[in-house]
Design a binder for these strands. Sequence first.
DNA 1: CGTAATATTGCAACATTATAACCTAAGGTT
DNA 2: AACCTTAGGTTATAATGTTGCAATATTACG
Lengths: 167, 167
Amino acid sequence: MSQNVYQPHNHSHCVANALSQAQSLCHDKGARLTKVRQRVLELIWQSHKPVGAYELLPALANDGFNSAPPTVYRALDFLLDLGLVHRLHSLNAYVGCNHPGANHPVCFFICEHCGQAQELPNDKLNALTRQVEQVLGVQVHHQLTELTGLCPSCQPASGETTANDHA
Amino acid sequence: MSQNVYQPHNHSHCVANALSQAQSLCHDKGARLTKVRQRVLELIWQSHKPVGAYELLPALANDGFNSAPPTVYRALDFLLDLGLVHRLHSLNAYVGCNHPGANHPVCFFICEHCGQAQELPNDKLNALTRQVEQVLGVQVHHQLTELTGLCPSCQPASGETTANDHA
DNA sequence: CGTAATATTGCAACATTATAACCTAAGGTT
DNA sequence: AACCTTAGGTTATAATGTTGCAATATTACG
Ligand SMILES: [Zn+2]
Ligand SMILES: [Zn+2]
Ligand SMILES: [Zn+2]
Ligand SMILES: [Zn+2]
């Protein structure tokens, strides 16, 4: 469940799993996973690198869909509402959620070299939120945590091997 | 030191303190706090509500400065580099830092009703970062944490008094 | 089925936020 | 003064996101 996108893995499983979860979630909530919406979700899941809204337009046009900004933004809003994707504010980009359904607090790590983003369930995050609520006497409704740095594969290696060569 | 912007306070102290710290910091680093830069800093510190770059332009024009986007963005870049202001990504807006100088990790709480933002030193934040580094084997270089919700004054009151009436 | 209500999409224009490029002005150094 | 470096003025443009309305598809209901 707690996968690590920086390690070699069968990414087609990620995609298949995401689509499957999206379909059942939409069915449960009576939401319609239309062709445009499903295609946008697929495009976002092509990698773990967050993708900008305008990057999706050419691909949609190529698939015969309309390719004006509102098309993709509406699809993104739909997917965001259902928690199927997240928006990374530090990048203005969108990435698939690997455990959709819950309106869960989100913590992302983003590699500043390869660009891949990993979502983490993090118990420290809830501790942080509770602390802020206590110290300030506030009610926290939403939260946004994005950490940036170098993933294992992109750190200057102690040895000389390139970490992904044998993948 | 650990002030709370949601409580009544003498805000002119905030402004005076910010300007004083900015001047000494610039002196120490050999940076020039020019008139435009200082004015932008003052404008940002007019309240604890983060301000958008384009909101600053009319005020600058009113003061006889040039008021084209590059002017304000250059000033903001300068202030950001020195750590005198922070950028809130969830708002695309800028707010003064109450303890500039260090390249410190930042945690903000933003009231979604009154818009005021409070910067918090938070020990849980470092714990979170260390945990992420350990779990993923990554190196964290930057971090971004923004919590949104209701501040004490903006929460639906149990009583009926408006919290700021007597301020 | 036929029709009305609702949800989705196509389309055009526009709004907001940020940057690039190029030149001039100001401040510091010798 | 001559020179160099930094800062600011100006114009244009890029990148990201929204609004409004008409057209179409889907669902709900008699
Ligand atoms: Zn994958
Ligand atoms: Zn990487
Ligand atoms: Zn204040
Ligand atoms: Zn408030």
